[in-house]
Amino acid sequence: MNERVFVIEDDENIQEIVKLALESSGYEITLFDNAIDAIVAIHENPPDLAIFDIMLPELDGISAIKKIRETNTSMPIMVLSAKDREIDKVRGLDSGCDDYMTKPFGVLELSARVRSLLRRTKKTVKVLETPTLKIDKAKHIVLLNDKRLELTHKEYQLLVYLVENRDRVVEREELLNSIWGYDFVGESRALDVHIRSLRAKLNDDGSKYIKTIRSVGYRYIEDKQE
């Protein structure tokens, strides 16, 4: 079965361009001209990936993504928008989308980004365990000493990435590229804010779980301690 992609876009010309580009790559495309109908369809039968415009009638794309992330944290979501300011990208990525692409766009790059997002979700699902943490990647559940942690989408992604790469130091640029997308530009304060909030939920002062490696990045250190 071909992978299913929902495209939520109210501009018919853009709809047609995206549809033709992705259908030629073998994807099954369903079009929506508003976010409300798309949310209902996603709830009933989630696609493999969803592409949202931001400026939509009735309910904007950012609000729609936040709504979806309340119950679905695993479906990859891309934003495709004419809003190209840095603050727009930050808001989009912080809402829970996995990639942000601006208009006008190239169809080859769009197809490449879709392939990249779908490859990420095809990684073998497993349970990550450390002495005090248990992360069920299939259910997106994190337990700390058997007590469930309530993490945001980005906090969850950061924790999983650091735990999966706990045998090495992960550079700041790598985290930004992997979690916020490879075209994320400008300040990296978003990373600092999310690391701080994640540490707070782990009751970590920087010496228990996530260690800052000055001028380089971060390392998950729990199971490295004596």
Rank of each mutant, 00 (worst) to 15 (best):
I8F: 00
D98P: 11
D48S: 13
S111C: 06
L118Q: 05
V107F: 03
M75N: 06
I87M: 13
A64S: 15
I141Q: 13
E222L: 06
V216D: 00
D11L: 09
I213Y: 04
V142R: 04
Y209A: 01
P131D: 06
S207F: 13
S207V: 12
Y220K: 02
E171W: 02
L20Q: 14
F32N: 02
S74Y: 05
R69C: 08
T212A: 11
K19D: 02
I42S: 00
I17P: 00
V160W: 04
K123R: 15
S197M: 02
R91W: 04
L20F: 15
S178T: 09
K224N: 13
G186W: 06
L176D: 01
R168N: 06
E164R: 02
S81Y: 01
E23A: 07
D37T: 13
R113A: 01
E28Q: 11
D84L: 11
K83L: 15
G106M: 14
K19N: 04
R120E: 13
R119H: 12
I51S: 03
R199P: 04
I87K: 13
D99K: 03
K122H: 13
G92S: 12
V79S: 01
R172M: 12
T73V: 09
P76F: 04
S74V: 07
A190Q: 05
V216R: 11
D84K: 15
H140W: 14
M101L: 15
N72G: 03
H194F: 07
D99Y: 08
I39C: 03
K122T: 14
T30D: 08
T212S: 12
